[in-house]
């Protein structure tokens, strides 16, 4: 896997593949993830992206931040769209009309992946198109103004599951999409964060090397939607790992492996640290009757963690 030195040399050679000048919010996790992911690819990459923050902030006509071929068609279908490109690539190669070696990346936010694009993602994975699907999970529909998705954690405030006088934010636990993708028995599935370049680039390299579909779920912190200071994005990603709210792991050919574990020196942090770090959970600490809910959230994280440990044994 590429060292920092190798990645730096690659950056020098290729230049920025996602250029500056895009309109992503200050502190947005997405451009960090994309720049690192594109750098991790040795072969030329074609990118397909759903409608959402990433697409609208990087492709404002007549400008584009993308220095790789990029396609956006709609909200729920980057997996299907890229599967068409990949099929065309195979067809043209087979006929001797194209000879380059390419890699394909489809991407989308949690809304475009967990929710509206779930079917097209599942279909593309089942059909076995060789492509990496990168989910940029910021845990709500941020582009349209922070609405709840099935990736939004229980208890978070969003504009369509707001914290009110009688309802304390979202009432349901989030979907475990990464596990859903493992269930597709594709060659490579992983979770990572914006904020750990080594883990992210290693996983992208492995995913692109897999001879078939691969999926990486990246927790991409959102200062605007979560309510924290923009300079803390990378720390937020790490805190999600340290509290086991977002464990980083990979499943290679069905084999589960944890990529980060709490140690005696650095034990698992209580979830309260995570909850307190963001305004979207602030109501939990203002209300007097939230203790039970906070305990339930901790319990859920503990249970998920134990189950994950068991799978990784």
């Amino acid at each position: 896997m590429a060292t920092l030195k190798e990645l730096a040399a690659r950056a020098e050679e290729k230049g920025e593949l996602l250029s500056g000048g895009h309109r992503a919010c200050l502190g947005c996790g997405h451009p960090i993830v994309i720049r690192q992911a594109l750098l991790a690819a040795k072969e030329p990459v074609i990118v397909g992206c759903v409608t959402g923050c990433l697409e609208v902030t990087t492709t404002i006509f007549p400008y584009t931040a993308w220095r790789v071929p990029f396609i956006h068609s709609a909200f729920e279908n980057s997996a299907a769209t890229v599967s068409g490109i990949e099929a065309a690539y195979r067809a043209l190669k087979k006929q001797g009309k194209y000879d380059k070696e390419l890699r394909f990346m489809a991407m989308g936010g949690d809304g475009g992946t967990y929710d509206i694009g779930f079917q097209s993602l599942s279909g593309a994975a089942e059909r076995g198109h060789r492509m990496l699907y990168l989910c940029l999970d910021n845990e709500a529909y941020m582009n349209t103004g922070i609405q709840r998705s099935s990736a939004t954690p229980k208890g978070a405030h969003t504009t369509t599951a707001p914290a009110g006088k009688v309802i304390p934010g979202k009432q349901q636990h989030r979907k475990d999409l990464t596990a859903c993708m493992v269930a597709h028995r594709i060659p490579y599935v992983a979770q990572t964060i914006a904020g750990n370049w080594k883990d992210l680039t290693t996983k992208v390299e492995k995913a692109l090397a897999a001879d078939g579909p691969s999926f990486i779920n990246v927790l991409s912190p959102c200062p605007t939607g979560w309510g924290y200071k923009p300079e803390l994005t990378l720390e937020m990603g790490q805190l999600a790992v340290d509290t086991c709210f977002w464990p980083i792991y990979e499943v290679e050919d069905g084999k589960w492996k944890l990529n980060h574990q709490p140690t005696e020196k650095k034990p698992k942090k209580p979830l309260v640290e995570w909850l307190k770090s963001q305004r979207r959970f602030a109501h939990l600490f203002k209300a007097t009757d939230s203790e039970e809910l906070i305990a339930e959230l901790q319990e859920r994280v503990d249970q998920d963690w134990e189950e994950l440990l068991a799978k990784c044994e």
Binding site: A80, T81, S83, G84, I85, E86, L92, Q119, G123, R127
Partner: peptide, 24 residues
């Protein structure tokens, strides 16, 4: 032909769009 048997017509047309944008 590469035949892509999609999971819906929405994905069928999406895949057609991707493939056509790839010059097929």
């Amino acid at each position: 032909t590469e035949f892509v048997a999609t999971e819906s017509e929405h994905s069928a047309m999406s895949a057609c769009i991707g493939a056509a944008a790839a010059g097929a």
